[in-house]
Structures are given as structure tokens and as C-alpha cells.
Design a protein around this nucleic acid. Sequence first.
RNA 1: GGCGCGGUGGCGGAGAGGCUACGCAGCGGCCUGCAAAGCCGUGUACACCGGUUCAAAUCCGGUCCGCGCCUCCA
Length: 469
Amino acid sequence: MNSQKNNNTKVYLYNTLTRSKTEFVPLNPDNIGIYVCGPTVYDYAHIGNARPVIVFDVLVRLFRHLYGDKKVTYVRNITDVDDKIIDVHQRTGESISELTSRTIRAFQNDMSKLGNKAPDIEPRATDHIAEMQEMISLLIRKGNAYEKDGHVLFDVSTNSTYGKLSHRNLDELIAGARVEVAPYKKNPSDFVLWKPSDTNQPGWSSPWDQENHPGRPGWHIECSAMSQKYLGDTFDIHAGGVDLVFPHHENEIAQSQCANGLDSFAKIWMHNGFLTIEGEKMSKSIGNIVSVRDLLRENSGETIRLCMLMTHYRQPINWTTKSMKQAKKTLDGWYSSLKEFEGKGQKTEVPKKFIKALADDLNTPRAISILHELSSEQKKRPSQKNRDNLIAAGNLLGFFNFTPQEWFDSNEKNNNSEIDVLVVEKKILERDKAREAGDFSRADKLRNELTKLGVVLEDGPNGTKWRHN
RNA sequence: GGCGCGGUGGCGGAGAGGCUACGCAGCGGCCUGCAAAGCCGUGUACACCGGUUCAAAUCCGGUCCGCGCCUCCA
């Protein structure tokens, strides 16, 4: 319905390339291209993997709202060839194709539960080996890459602008190199475009095979090849976690620009901040990896999403159960303000200031404060219009996918309580009788019993309602 | 060592030269048989030291602390 939008909301985005916030001007307002680095599929997604997905889902929603549903192409890749995948395969014996397709399904399922819309295109690296090989050949022909012992390496010294994204210069990189220099590298900073596989590793035949030994691509080349295929040589936005700035994105830029021209490739680079768990880095050795799957067992996807969006995307975020509780409480409040005038909602314009907050480099915390305002307005002066406003704004962030009834009912499940509804109803009836009879001490006793069970009673003009605490 | 980010009230978290952020919690009140919800009101803040300015949490310099990347980890 909103395929054609005209509006004059200016969007400002922080660009890692320039280290500044500038007005976003689409290369082509009829087709805005966004490429987000997706997961390597060797294990269930953890909460850190979810951050870019949620954050850039909001960006895509905003763009669709401003420019029209059909005017945005959102690509998020899937890395399904990688040494970590091979490791898991060799450890567990599960075939690589089984492991990756199972993990992809789980990822898509988890992300959808977090309120994320699927990307338009979700290309898999292994479906694009030919495109990668083509780009590698081109780089060799142009003199930007060389072959050595079955490896193809990118020759960083041929790229005068190398380091412009991460603001490093080659001399520093060489001087500060902590990595052992592989014997086949001309320069310590050269990186692999293609490498030979052992017999027990997945491989594809290539022009660089030695004695018919197949090989596999290096990490960075897939994003260069796939973004080019689906978004063209030059497109609007490339995004991912900050940790990808170097070397991944730096290397992508080097490959793509050497292949397609120095002014090609993504115009704006966006990076979300890092996430820690209760103040510590998430790591296997500490054993504090929090999977989305586990969180979803006890929390609604909307709660997790709100918790994520309460912090601005470029800020570091510390993931705690405390902030999850606060997010849950906030959503309870919003949903309870939606109880009135339920039913025939109307599509309304999303309040301007809400859009403006998001258009200011995705300022979700400010957008959320406006949601509070709208919710409070609805509590003070309930009306269909106020309700619709709150819903429209919330929807744009991916909230309010439930009715209030569904929302509060699901609390029950998430609390995984063993509250017996019949017992509760019976006690409430007893209490009502006691109250009518003026036996308030008995009424209070019954209330206390229910409180202990985690049931909150709300006496209103239309009788007593109850909900889970 | 190099590159980069950050330190805001009890907690979470925006803002970025002068104007209440906001939310949670707290406190006082209204309402209520009592509560809950809701409403009204309210306190506490910009790591430290200098500087620029009529005015600095916001700009500049320095110090301290925390974190990330430089290891195909988002």
C-alpha cells in the first residue's frame, strides 16, 4: 500500500568511512541497496549475532517506510564454507551440508521470533563459487593478486587506498604485525582469496589447483562477489558488527575496488557496537555464550528486541537479566495501555517525531521514549486514535505483534508457572463473596494466598481481573 | 605498541555550548474496604584536572579507568 511515498524526512547516518554523521542520499531512490554481513553457520545464533540483525532490520523498516516497500533491496549473506564449520563437522561427524542447512533453518527461525523480517535475498557462499572465482581471476589479470603454492593472495601493496576504512596504514600494519608470516605471502598483510583444501575438506576445482587438488575461497571474497551480483558494483549501505571493520570489510573494499574501480562499492559503512554479557566478553572459554534459542525459552522475542533497541546501536551494550526484566516491564505497560479500544484499528500515520528520531542515525532510545509518551497519552485519554498512533509507531520498530490478551497469556507460559487457573478462579470467587459480605480480613487472606502463587489481582468496576506477576 | 570507542543521577539510557530527556526503582499525595493499575508531584548527574566562553556535561589540552580491533569472533 505504501509503494509510493513522498516525504521530506532527511535521514542521517553515521558512516565509518568518514567517521561522521551525514545526510543519506540514495544513489537511486527507486532501488536502495543494503548488504549486511550474515552468520557463519556452524552453531546456534548467540545474542551478539542477533544485534546486527535487529538493528539493520530497523534500518530497512525505516527505509521502506520512507521510500516505499519495493524500493529497498536487503541482502544478507550466509557463510556456509568456513574452517569453523569444517571443525564442527570433523568433531561431530555430521555432514557439512546437514550441519549448515540445519543451522540456517535455526537461524532464520530464531531471527524471525525476534521480530525481524527476512531479507529479500539471503545468498549462500557455496552457491556463488563461480562468481568468486571470476572475481579472483580478474584480480589476477589486473595484477592485484598472485598465485603461490596453490594459494591465491591479494597483493595489498597494489591498493593505494588500503586501510581507509579502519584508518590504518600499511607501514603500521607491517610494523605491528603479530601474525606469523606465511611463507607464501609477499607481504604480511596480503590475504587469501583462494586456498587449497585437504582431502577431508570441502573443495571446488579451480584454475589454481595443483595436481587437481581442489580448493576453497578465503573469507572476504564471498561478500565482494555476492554484493556485486545482487546490488551491483556500487550500492548504498554495507553493514555489520564493528569487529568486522578490520580485516573483513577493509579487505572487501580492497578486492571490490581493485576489481571494479576505486570509486565503486558501498558508499556508507555502518557498524553496530559490541555486546558483553554481565560485563564480560562472551566467549567459549568463559562459558557465557548466551544463545538466542535459550533466551527465547523464557522471554518473548519482543522483550529481547526491546532490550536490544534500548541502547543506541553504536554504543556498547551490556546484556543483563536485569535489563531484560526492565524491557519486559516496559512492554507490559505498553500492552496494558492497548487494552482499550481493541478491535477495529486504523492505519494511521506514524508520528513525525518518532520518524525523526529514527532518521537521526537510528536513535532507537529516543524513539522508545516517544513510545512511552504515546502510551502514556493513551492511558490518560484513551481513544482509538491514540491507540492507533502507538501501534503504528511500535510496529515500525517491530513491536505489537500480539494482542494484549495474547501478550499477557504468553507471560504465563514464559513464567512456566504451575498456576492452576481453576484454583485461582475459585479463590477469586470466594474472595468476591467475602468482600460482598464485608469480611475483608478473609478477602485479604485470599489475596495473600494468590500473591504467593504469583498472581496479581486487580479490582475494577467490571469485577476482578488477574494476571501473572 | 598501533587503530578506535566509551565513562551521565540508585539502575538502564538519550542529549552534545544556555532550554524537564525518557524509563525503572525511591519518596509524597489522589484514587481504593485493602491492594493493584492509573494519575499528580518530587530529590539525586554529567570520571578527574586545567583552558576557551557572558555561559561547558557538551569545545580544547592533559590525567585516570573500562572496552573493542590489530588472531577469517557480529
